[in-house]
């Protein structure tokens, strides 16, 4: 079953340029999905469309099989969201925020939320504005989890945190995923972390999706071929990126490990990080320029 499905999704702000175009993918349930792309690639737009904060210019969004409708946002009870820089009402105490969450949501697990905050040593009588950045992020995550969503969407949740706070935040998130059937969609620039945390990826480049799939399959479906520099005109099937030395070339190609390699080439596996960077750095294709 898919948690989130988008079909031909596009968003144009005013009469200006398209922030997102022709996006189609399925996100499997129970996974941790990483949304990756350069700044301005359309990540936040895509996340906001997915949770109904924005209405699409074209295409549609389905949450757990049901179309997301702006006029009847009942489906949103199943979605939790932590926005960029995890904003909280700064003048509210942590207890106020819990009270607010309980009043605004039909299903709100305050017991677990209080337990989690106690474990993290976050005082309930402290005003949100006086908490450290890491604590604010943890409170925002705790509130989103207390809603007991089936899909949790996080927009660069740990980008502004120091390494230790970041680790604690991600640790809380991993624990929460282990505790439930939660599906997580998070945007991130921390490519090194993706390999450990995510089991599915969506890559955006200039408002278009350039790669999507299970991380295991993506890694198994690509490899680096090293060998004598090929004829410039020779077409290599599934070529993603090439680095050339004077006599030697390294080619990142999309082809399964089972495809036999020409004896001139040495085939090596590729890391997820290498793969992601190669796709993000790919030169613009003609149809991508508009």
């Amino acid at each position: 079953m898919t948690a989130l499905r988008v079909e031909g999704l596009g968003k144009r702000y005013g009469r200006g340029t398209w922030a997102l175009r022709e996006c189609t993918f399925d996100l499997p349930q129970g996974r941790i999905i990483g949304l990756v792309g350069a700044n301005g690639a359309g990540k936040t737009t895509l996340l906001h469309l997915a949770i109904g904060l924005l209405s699409p210019t074209e295409g549609s969004v389905f949450l757990f099989g049901r179309p997301l409708r702006m006029d009847r946002p009942a489906g949103l009870a199943e979605v939790g969201f932590v926005a960029q820089d995890h904003p909280l009402y700064r003048g509210f105490t942590v207890a106020d925020l819990l009270h607010f969450g309980r009043s605004m949501n039909r299903r709100f697990d305050e017991t677990t939320a209080r337990k989690r905050l106690a474990e993290l040593g976050i005082p309930l009588d402290r005003r949100a504005g006086r908490l450290s950045g890491g604590q604010q992020a943890q409170v925002a995550l705790t509130l989103a989890l207390a809603k007991q969503p089936r899909l949790l969407v996080l927009d660069e949740p740990a980008a502004s945190l120091d390494p230790l706070a970041r680790r604690e935040f991600m640790s809380t998130l991993m624990g929460a995923v282990a505790d439930s059937e939660l599906t997580v969609l998070l945007s991130s620039h921390a490519i090194g972390e993706l390999e450990r945390v995510c089991d599915h990826l969506v890559l955006l480049r200039k408002g278009r999706m350039c790669l999507a799939g299970d991380t295991d399959e993506l890694v198994a479906g690509h490899r680096v071929l090293s060998g004598p520099r090929p004829d410039a005109n020779a077409a290599m099937q599934g070529l993603v990126a090439a680095t050339h030395g004077p006599r030697q070339s390294h080619l990142l190609v999309r082809q399964p490990v089972t495809v036999p390699v020409h004896p001139h080439w040495e085939a090596n596996p590729v890391s997820l990080e290498e793969l992601v960077l190669a796709y993000l750095a790919q030169p613009e294709t003609k149809e991508g320029r508009d």
Binding site: M170, G175, V177, A178, R196, V197, D199
Partner: peptide, 17 residues
């Protein structure tokens, strides 16, 4: 250790554990 504890301690996907 439980899957949850390993996932939280190493900050890895529980599905991987």
């Amino acid at each position: 250790p439980t899957v949850r504890d390993v996932a939280a301690a190493l900050v890895v996907n529980p599905n991987t554990v």
